[in-house]
Each structure stands twice: as structure tokens, then as C-alpha cells.
Design a protein around this nucleic acid. Structure first.
Lengths: 163, 163
DNA sequence: GTCTATAATGGGATAGAC
DNA sequence: GTCTATCCCATTATAGAC
């Protein structure tokens, strides 16, 4: 709490004018980091285009969001266990839904003959692990555009064998 | 500490007959989880065979080790920040060395015309992220043999474009 | 809304009996 | 080598002045 307060330029005790508890702060971070992707990223999966085109767009928005909110992403993962069971369930549900939608577009690509994997769920888990792994080592001086292009290639052309 | 003691069937205070501090326990876990892969896995990179063959064997031993020591793997990642600077440096150095050796075999594969990636370092980071991501969701009832085959395919044929 | 001061809590660590 | 009892201290949280 003191660290958070320091970074905002106030004392630890003053945080309690804005949040009821530490858990509430962690929940706010974790909730934002899972709800925003569901509400704002997944729309690209409903736009026109082939599964490969739609997944490609999702990889872009996913990685760019992660690049901007790297620390919050790590916090929401690390502190998931510190949430109340109720709050944790909300976050986990958002994550599961996101995962499911990625799996669905992979499965659609397989049905359309664009992708060639035996197990769409496993491939979508791998794709998300690959993307989320970026948050462990990304630095501000990295070229995000190049990163996005490379990871689209790794996932779409690589893991999913498109084209 | 009390949780660890419970799982061993003794009281928390009795742990101090075996370890001097909590940090010492965490260091023992983290050190084992980084030194063992360096000392025991990397030998497969020195055995005969093409880069693709040697990397394929490394993926196998890496994932099987991770499947057996899933919890320790997560602990050593999560508690890295809890180590003393000296201990953390040792662990980080082992990890960097492992990473470097994987990059080297990827680079060798590129030079040999087996792999087709623009940046061997980035590809090796992706490959390791992909493998290590498994520890977040692997369960005891998963088929590790099938997992290994799939991930070899994702990495070697997928990301690295072999064959 | 922020501050200082302080309470309350939880968990790492120690002492000493057995 | 394990136990109970306790200490210690960092951290979360509250009280009340300004």
C-alpha cells in the first residue's frame, strides 16, 4: 500500500479515502485487465473477414493492450490468489470466456480449411500463452509493431499452419 | 512456513531445524529448478544430430521435467523477487545461460537451412515462453506424451518452419 | 482528502522443554 | 528433531486533527 501511495504522491493511509481495502485495489486492476479485453478486443472477432483475418486482428489488439498495460497484467496474474473467492471467480470467468472465443475462431479456421491443427483448444491455449508470455520480458524500448508482426507470423502461419 | 510445515506433517517452528529461513527454502527450490535443467537437459544439445533433432529432444526433456515439477516451477517464478539479490542473481544467470543455449541451437538451425526465422533470439524466447506457459494449466491427468508431440510440432514445424 | 499517530493483524523467527 | 509459547516486525487498516 505504501508503494502504491508513494507512486501516486500521497501517504498510505490516504489511499483508504479512495479504496476500502488492498483487495479492492487488486480487484479493480484484475477486473479491468480481464473485462476490457473481453468488451473491447473480442469485437474484432465479430467483424467481417476470414477466421485468419479476424484472429490476426485480435493478436494485434491483444499484444498492443498488453504492451501498454504490462505491469497491470503481471499484477492481475500474480495477485489473483489474493482476491476474495467471489472476485476471483469474476476474473476467472472473464478469462475463460476470452479463451473460449479464441478457441472458437481457431475452430472456425480449421473448419474453413485455413488452419491445420488437430486440437483447436490446445492450439488456442498455446497461442494465448505465447502472447501473454510477452508481458514477462517486454520493455518500453521494444518495437511493438515488429513484435506484433512476428507473433502473428508465429501463431497464424506457424502454430496454425495458415498459408 | 506454516503451510509448508503442514504439508510435511510437522509444525512451522520445526522447519527451522532444516532451513535457516524462508528465503533459504525458496532459494533451494528456485536453484534446483534452474540448475537441474542447465546441468541435465542441455547435454542433449551436445549429442549428435541436426539442430532440429537436438532441439526436439530438448523440448521433450524440458516439458517432462516441468510436468513432474510443476509446482516448484511456479514457485521459483513467483518467489524470484523474494530472494536476496545474490541468490536471485545466481538463479537469473542459470536462466540466461539456458536461454542462450536454446538461442544458439536455433541459430545453428537457421545457418543449416533447417529453420526459417528472421531473429533466432526472439524465436527462442517465444519457444521457451510457449513451453513454460504449460506450467500454468497442466494437470496431473494430462497426457504428457501427447503434449510433448504437439509442442514439438508447434515449435519446430510451426514457429521455426522446419520441414 | 491528506496528514500523523496508532491500532490490529498476520506471518516469519526464536527459546526452551521434552 | 519436534513441540508449545512467544516474540518480533512488517504491513494493513483506522482514528481523528487539519
Amino acid at each position: 500500500m505504501r508503494g502504491i501511495a508513494d507512486s501516486v504522491g500521497i501517504k498510505g493511509a490516504s489511499l483508504y479515502n479512495h479504496f476500502g481495502s488492498k483487495e479492492e485495489i487488486l480487484y479493480a486492476i484484475a477486473l479491468t485487465m480481464t473485462r476490457v479485453p473481453v468488451e473491447e478486443h473480442l469485437v474484432v472477432l465479430d467483424e467481417p473477414g476470414s477466421p485468419a483475418e479476424r484472429l490476426t486482428r485480435l493478436i494485434g489488439v491483444h499484444l498492443r493492450h498488453l504492451a501498454v498495460h504490462r505491469v497491470e497484467h503481471l499484477v492481475s496474474l500474480r495477485e489473483l490468489a489474493a482476491l476474495t473467492p467471489e472476485h476471483r471467480a469474476v476474473v476467472v470467468d472473464y478469462r475463460k470466456y476470452y479463451q473460449r472465443r479464441v478457441r472458437d475462431v481457431v475452430a472456425a479456421g480449421v473448419r474453413a480449411g485455413e488452419f491445420h491443427v488437430a486440437d483447436p483448444l490446445r492450439a488456442s491455449v498455446a497461442a494465448l500463452d505465447l502472447m501473454n508470455g510477452v508481458s514477462w520480458w517486454l520493455r518500453d524500448d521494444h518495437d511493438v509493431d515488429g513484435l506484433v508482426d512476428t507473433y502473428i507470423d508465429y501463431i497464424v502461419s506457424g502454430i496454425l499452419r495458415h498459408g
